[in-house]
Design a protein around this nucleic acid. Sequence first.
DNA 1: CGATGACACCTTGACATCCTACATATGCAT
DNA 2: ATGCATATGTAGGATGTCAAGGTGTCATCG
Lengths: 113, 113
Amino acid sequence: MAGEAQKSDLLQGTLDMLILKVVALGPTHGYAIAQRLQQMSKDVLQVQQGSLYPALHRLEKRGWVRAEWAASDTGRDARFYSLTRVGRKQLEEQSENWDRLSAAISGILRTAE
Amino acid sequence: MAGEAQKSDLLQGTLDMLILKVVALGPTHGYAIAQRLQQMSKDVLQVQQGSLYPALHRLEKRGWVRAEWAASDTGRDARFYSLTRVGRKQLEEQSENWDRLSAAISGILRTAE
DNA sequence: CGATGACACCTTGACATCCTACATATGCAT
DNA sequence: ATGCATATGTAGGATGTCAAGGTGTCATCG
């Protein structure tokens, strides 16, 4: 705790979108999704397991991803997720929404005093 | 509700920061803060009153804003909020954090498939 | 005079999301 | 045998937002 800046690991509401994006790049299992998000963001984003797996389950329940067991790189069984057609649509919508909202917010923050 | 995509009016976790920013531009009362955010964002952001007032109260409780009664433009009494020194510090920190996180997210979304 | 709508404050209850912490199990290296 | 990275999952609690409702004032319109 030596003067570390407080970090919230995520922006609320963006996790589903980020997972969809990673899965859109190719079928991936949960553990790897979290690692990849961390790498892709250069350690800015960190997904806790207690956030990750519930998110994957709700995405599957909504039909945005499909899951199946397969062997991971290391030979162990892992649950691979792939994007459904509905999921791809969702990813597009959420990305557009993100662009709109984040641009609006950044614009406000840039307002000169 | 004609097939409208569900849209959350805000990105969770950004409301406090946005309020601090508006208040940083000059003392303002709650109702006007919500209007201003909507205007500044060209109707992209909409703050519900059930989000606004609890937010103002927690900002005050944390000592990030100071509140006092005064007459509004229309002559009616309103509760004007102004930024404290601690609040200004918070605004800076949260803005930097926003920049980091939003840049990371946008970067991931831009990854080519 | 009564109704309406904009202004301005506020609370309650439900809900979704996230985090901390815990729990389980495998494979590999030491 | 012990530990570590991999890999999945749940339980409990905190937080933030929303939908919906409520109070009261003031100006305007019919």
